[in-house]
Measured scan of single mutants.
Amino acid sequence: SISSRVKSKRIQLGLNQAELAQKVGTTQQSIEQLENGKTKRPRFLPELASALGVSVDWLLN
C-alpha cells in the first residue's frame, strides 16, 4: 500500500514525518494521515515521490 511504502522509504532515508513534510511542502499531520492509511491519494503525490527519490508509479503499485 502507499502508506507502507511511504513509511518504509521515509525511515530508510532517516527522515521523520516533519522532515519529510517540509521537503514535500505539506504538514506533518498530512504525512501522518497518509502513513496511517487515512489518505489514499494525496494531492502532493508528485512532490512526495520526488522527496523520497521514487516514482509516482512505485508509490501507487
Rank of each mutant, 00 (worst) to 15 (best):
S1Y: 11
S1N: 12
S1F: 11
S1P: 09
S3E: 08
S3P: 07
S3H: 10
S3Y: 05
S3F: 05
S3C: 12
S3A: 15
S3T: 06
S4Y: 11
S4K: 10
S4E: 15
S4H: 13
S4C: 13
S4F: 11
S4R: 11
S4G: 10
S4W: 12
S4L: 13
R5Y: 04
R5F: 06
R5K: 11
V6N: 00
V6E: 01
V6T: 08
V6M: 08
V6A: 08
V6Y: 03
V6S: 06
K7R: 14
K7V: 10
K7L: 08
S8A: 14
S8N: 12
S8K: 12
K9G: 04
K9W: 04
K9A: 10
K9V: 10
K9D: 00
K9Y: 05
R10S: 03
R10T: 09
R10A: 01
I11D: 06
I11V: 10
I11F: 08
I11M: 13
I11C: 09
I11N: 08
I11E: 11
I11Y: 08
Q12H: 09
Q12K: 09
Q12W: 08
Q12I: 08
Q12F: 10
Q12S: 15
L13Y: 05
L13F: 05
L13A: 07
L13S: 05
L13E: 04
L13D: 03
L13I: 07
L13C: 07
G14N: 07
L15A: 02
L15E: 01
L15H: 03
L15C: 05
L15G: 01
L15S: 04
L15K: 03
N16T: 15
N16E: 09
N16F: 04
N16R: 07
N16V: 05
N16G: 11
N16A: 09
Q17Y: 08
Q17S: 08
Q17H: 09
A18K: 11
A18Y: 14
E19K: 05
E19Y: 04
E19R: 05
E19C: 06
E19Q: 12
E19A: 09
L20Q: 01
L20F: 04
L20H: 00
L20M: 04
L20N: 01
A21Y: 01
A21K: 02
A21I: 01
A21F: 00
A21H: 01
A21Q: 01
A21T: 01
Q22S: 11
Q22F: 12
Q22Y: 11
Q22C: 10
K23F: 10
K23C: 09
K23W: 08
V24P: 01
V24H: 02
V24M: 06
V24A: 10
G25M: 05
G25V: 03
G25F: 05
T26V: 15
T26G: 04
T26F: 04
T26K: 05
T26I: 11
T26H: 04
T26L: 08
T26W: 06
T27I: 06
T27A: 06
T27V: 05
T27E: 06
Q28M: 12
Q28A: 12
Q28I: 15
Q28H: 09
Q28N: 07
Q29P: 07
Q29C: 09
Q29I: 11
Q29K: 14
Q29L: 13
S30H: 13
S30R: 12
S30M: 15
I31E: 00
I31P: 02
I31D: 01
I31K: 12
E32Q: 12
E32A: 13
E32I: 12
E32Y: 09
E32P: 01
E32F: 10
E32S: 10
Q33R: 14
Q33M: 14
Q33E: 15
L34T: 04
E35D: 01
E35I: 02
N36Y: 07
N36P: 02
G37A: 07
G37H: 06
G37R: 05
G37P: 02
G37Q: 05
G37C: 07
K38Q: 14
K38N: 13
K38G: 11
K38A: 13
K38M: 15
K38E: 14
K38R: 12
K38S: 13
K38D: 13
T39L: 15
T39C: 15
T39F: 14
T39S: 11
T39Q: 10
K40S: 13
K40W: 15
R41E: 11
P42V: 14
P42L: 11
P42K: 04
R43D: 13
R43F: 14
R43H: 13
R43I: 12
R43G: 12
F44P: 01
F44T: 02
F44H: 06
F44D: 04
L45V: 08
L45H: 01
L45T: 04
L45D: 01
L45E: 02
L45S: 03
L45W: 05
P46N: 14
P46E: 12
P46Y: 14
P46H: 14
P46L: 14
P46C: 13
E47V: 08
E47N: 09
E47I: 08
E47P: 04
E47Y: 07
L48W: 01
L48E: 00
L48N: 00
L48C: 02
A49C: 05
A49I: 03
S50F: 14
S50W: 13
S50C: 10
S50L: 14
A51Q: 06
A51P: 00
A51D: 02
A51V: 13
A51Y: 06
L52N: 00
L52M: 05
L52D: 00
L52Q: 00
L52I: 04
L52K: 00
L52T: 00
G53C: 07
G53W: 04
G53S: 07
G53L: 06
G53F: 06
G53P: 00
V54A: 04
V54F: 03
V54H: 01
V54D: 11
V54R: 02
S55V: 05
S55K: 07
S55G: 08
S55R: 07
V56Y: 07
V56H: 05
V56D: 04
V56L: 13
D57I: 09
D57N: 11
D57H: 12
W58N: 03
W58F: 07
W58C: 03
W58S: 03
W58G: 01
W58M: 03
W58H: 03
W58Y: 08
L59N: 00
L59S: 00
L59C: 02
L59H: 00
L59G: 04
L59D: 00
L59A: 00
L59I: 09
L59Y: 02
L59T: 00
L60W: 09
L60R: 08
L60I: 13
N61M: 11
N61D: 12
N61V: 09
N61Y: 14
N61W: 12
N61S: 13
